[in-house]
Design a protein around this nucleic acid. Sequence first.
DNA 1: TGAAAAAACGAACGGTCGTGCTATATTCGA
DNA 2: TCGAATATAGCACGACCGTTCGTTTTTTCA
Lengths: 196, 196
Amino acid sequence: MSKGEQTRQQIISRALSLSSEVGLEGLSLGNLASELKLSKSGLFAHFKSKEALQLDVLQAACELFARDVVKPSLAQPRGLRRLRSLFDHYIAWVRGSSKTRTCIFMGLSQEYDDRPGPVRDALAKSQFDWQASVARVAATAVETGEFRKDVDLQQFAFEFTGIGMIFQQFSKLLQDKQAERHAYAAFEALMTRSRR
Amino acid sequence: MSKGEQTRQQIISRALSLSSEVGLEGLSLGNLASELKLSKSGLFAHFKSKEALQLDVLQAACELFARDVVKPSLAQPRGLRRLRSLFDHYIAWVRGSSKTRTCIFMGLSQEYDDRPGPVRDALAKSQFDWQASVARVAATAVETGEFRKDVDLQQFAFEFTGIGMIFQQFSKLLQDKQAERHAYAAFEALMTRSRR
DNA sequence: TGAAAAAACGAACGGTCGTGCTATATTCGA
DNA sequence: TCGAATATAGCACGACCGTTCGTTTTTTCA
């Protein structure tokens, strides 16, 4: 990896964790540059515009999400096991790591849901794909016979993600210690409802 | 109402609808002033600081929410009827009106969940109160005997609000025509689960 | 109606924003 | 190792930010 690509990755990585705090709009090139001990113009030279950086950051977030949430669960056997694993990793993602202290997608969804443009489009696509992933894993539970045949997979994905969103609200904003217990109780209810 | 108080209310009202688009941080005094055909300094004179304006806007949002969502449902008879009415009004609120095209609280939750300060505190309190309101209405369904006695009211409020959040995600960001159908299906499942 | 009070204005301040440009420093292949 | 390619720095730009201050206009009430 060339020197340029190397610092480029460092920029995106730092920008990712920064924007999970202040959003992609709130991201500032000057701030970002000084944190990385770069000149503002030196940093800027890696991107054609701020929007290009935002798109790169979003893509990086998607790759991280695929690596840390979706892929690990695919290692589990099809059906309930895989579905539970997906939820576990999803909750862990929302809970946040050192790199992203909060789920960046929920913040960005609020930031861009009425702000048309390429970033919004990319974000919407990523969330659409996420819903499809959840539905696909749920479908394996239908195929194994663990779920009823008439389970509405779109509906399942809808509620699945909803639990993640309200979990973030309770654990982050409200600092509710019971957030995780509530999340799992809701998830188990959803699972029970779908079983045959 | 004096002239000063009158324009002050106009400022807050316009600021409210603006910040449901760009957040309270993204709110700009210059922008706000020009929209209201006021000078920036003339507008500023009504508030000691931008933060004071933000707090006023948040309070206005709370009052609007109480008036349009909580209060109307209290006119319904205790129990299931009131609970359904609360959900109806909640969904209508999230769907948005002309004044607030999107639920301002969800945006602000993402904006402030890791930004300490008076605004965050006020916001957290408002959301805590909202959870309590949902639980209180659900309690009336227990009292009428329509809900089981062992229904976990906190859990109920958790899931109730979660449906609203994911509904916003689907209807606003993903522009999913089925969002409302999904929301009501989830709500009915939650109701069924709680009934005796 | 006139004087005191309140409200709105205009200009300016120090900052920061994203974005160009040119020049220097560093990396890298021949 | 040298020359070309690449990466970074420095500086400046116009625009906008929240905020302050002194002046002017408008409202209010005796």
